[in-house]
Simulated scan of single mutants.
Amino acid sequence: MQNAVSSSDKIRNRAAWVSAIASVLIFAMKVFAYRLTGSTAVLSDALESIVNVIAAIVALFVIRFASQPADENHPYGHGKAEYFSSAFEGGMIFFAAIMIIGEAVKALIYHEPTQQLETGLLIVGGAALVNLALGLYLKRVGRTHQSDALKASGAHVLSDVLTTVGVMVGLGLVLLTGIQWLDPVIAVLVGLQLAYAGFKIVRGSLGGLMDQQDPASLEQLAEAMEKNRVPGVINIHHLRVIRSGRFHHVDAHMVVPEYWDVSQVHAMTGDFEAAVVKDYEFDGELVFHLDPCKKSYCDSCQVPQCPIRLQPFRQKPDFSVKSLTDDPAPTNQGTHDRSGSSQTN
């Protein structure tokens, strides 16, 4: 498992390098197009690319830092650094949007003319194709190797492609109609779209920093627990997840047969934890607080030949996100013991 994680870290670092180099190339192409055309819309596209360059360089260092293993001062690893990277990128996008709108307003007031729009369209179109390939690559690596920084960069780069397409449409309209004020108007629209994109990225990053529950990962966790459920796992509830990049710490209460001894419970929970983590997309650990059944779960307990059963087994309720994260329907009065945990690296 260690080799697999190291390989994953190398892939994320390589993707960050590709992003940094490609962002510099795309920025240079757009600056050249602006110098040729004098278009405010092209300038707005180039300003966004400055954000791409800065964000790619920041992500390069953050991803290397986030890949460091857990240590004494960071027991859950360094993965939360990726949320800072994506939040920084979102803030930079919002700042670029303000700059773009300001330049567009100046162009509307002073009526700055455009020139050589055909050549500019070709250069900007080439930059859009490179950006499209980069954005799809970053999104794929970010999803496959659980990197929030790369996923945020990929989403930003793909939004940059849409921005460039909008700029190209605007330049095409200026060419067809000769109406020069369309150019800064397109730039204003680009700025507004970027401001919204930056807000969404910042909001998602703050959710990760504040351990906001992620519905998709919770759903996958519920499926893994249901798949690996054994008769001794009577109920799981009050589940919480702390996300630290690709490493997730899962804390929950597990109801077990009250007459089982410590060794039997420890062996069962250890096997269950290892099986769930193996089927879960992220690296992580599960830690359970153990609740004795107190004969409250007889009709949903599958333990065979139970010596204390008060009611016959009727139906085993499936694990779902709601059932795992809510408090249980029966009220258990027992004390909570803490089991060992299963961890992957």
Score class of each variant (00 low, 15 high):
Asn3Gly: 00
Ser6Glu: 15
Ser7Gly: 15
Ser7Trp: 04
Ser8Arg: 14
Ser8Ile: 04
Asp9Ile: 13
Asp9Ser: 11
Lys10Asn: 10
Asn13Tyr: 01
Arg14Ser: 07
Ala20Cys: 06
Ile21His: 01
Ala22Pro: 01
Leu25Met: 14
Ile26Ser: 01
Val31Arg: 09
Val31Gly: 02
Gly38Ser: 11
Ala41Val: 07
Val42Gln: 03
Val42Pro: 02
Ala46Lys: 04
Glu48Val: 01
Val51His: 07
Ala55His: 05
Ala55Glu: 08
Ala55Asp: 05
Ile57Leu: 15
Leu60Thr: 10
Ile63Leu: 09
Arg64Lys: 13
Ala66Trp: 09
Pro69Gly: 02
Asn73Asp: 14
Lys80Cys: 03
Glu82Tyr: 00
Tyr83Cys: 06
Phe84Asn: 00
Ser86His: 01
Gly90Phe: 04
Phe94Cys: 13
Phe95Cys: 14
Phe95Trp: 11
Ala96Ile: 09
Met99Cys: 14
Ile100Asn: 03
Ile101Tyr: 08
Val105His: 05
Ala107Asn: 07
Leu108Met: 14
Ile109Arg: 10
Glu112Trp: 03
Pro113Asn: 10
Leu117Ala: 09
Glu118Ala: 12
Ala127Tyr: 09
Ala128Gly: 00
Gly135Ala: 10
Gly135Asn: 07
Leu136Phe: 13
Tyr137Gln: 04
Tyr137Met: 06
Tyr137Lys: 03
Arg143Ser: 10
Leu150Ala: 08
Lys151Phe: 06
Ser153Val: 00
Gly154Lys: 03
Ala155Tyr: 05
Val157Gln: 06
Asp160Ser: 07
Leu162Asp: 02
Thr163Arg: 00
Gly166Leu: 09
Val167Lys: 06
Val169Ser: 05
Thr177Lys: 05
Ile179Ser: 00
Leu182Cys: 00
Pro184Glu: 03
Val185Thr: 03
Val185Pro: 00
Val188Asp: 01
Val190Phe: 05
Leu194His: 07
Ala195Leu: 13
Phe199Tyr: 15
Ile201Thr: 13
Ile201Glu: 09
Arg203Ser: 15
Gly207Leu: 09
Gly207Pro: 08
Leu209Asp: 04
Gln212Asn: 08
Gln213Asp: 15
Asp214Cys: 07
Asp214Glu: 15
Asp214Thr: 08
Ser217Arg: 07
Glu219Val: 02
Ala222His: 08
Ala222Glu: 09
Glu223Lys: 15
Lys227Phe: 07
Val230Ala: 05
Gly232Cys: 08
Ile234His: 03
His237Tyr: 14
Arg240Pro: 00
Val241Trp: 10
Val241Thr: 12
Val241Leu: 13
Ile242Gly: 00
Gly245Trp: 11
Arg246Gln: 12
Phe247Cys: 02
His249Thr: 11
Val250Ser: 02
Met254Arg: 01
Met254His: 01
Pro257Cys: 13
Gln264Glu: 14
Gln264Cys: 01
Ala267Met: 12
Ala267Tyr: 10
Thr269Ala: 13
Asp271Gln: 14
Phe272Lys: 10
Phe272Gly: 03
Phe272Trp: 13
Phe272Thr: 00
Glu273Met: 11
Lys278Thr: 12
Asp283Phe: 09
Gly284Met: 03
Phe288Gln: 07
Ser296Val: 06
Tyr297Ala: 08
Cys301Trp: 04
Cys301Ala: 04
Gln305Cys: 07
Cys306Asn: 09
Pro307Gln: 10
Asp318Phe: 07
Ser323Phe: 11
Leu324Ala: 03
Leu324Lys: 04
Thr325Ile: 05
Thr331Ile: 12
Gln333Asp: 12
Thr335Arg: 13
Thr335Ser: 12
Arg338Lys: 12
Arg338Gly: 02
Ser342Lys: 10
Thr344Arg: 13
Asn345Ala: 11
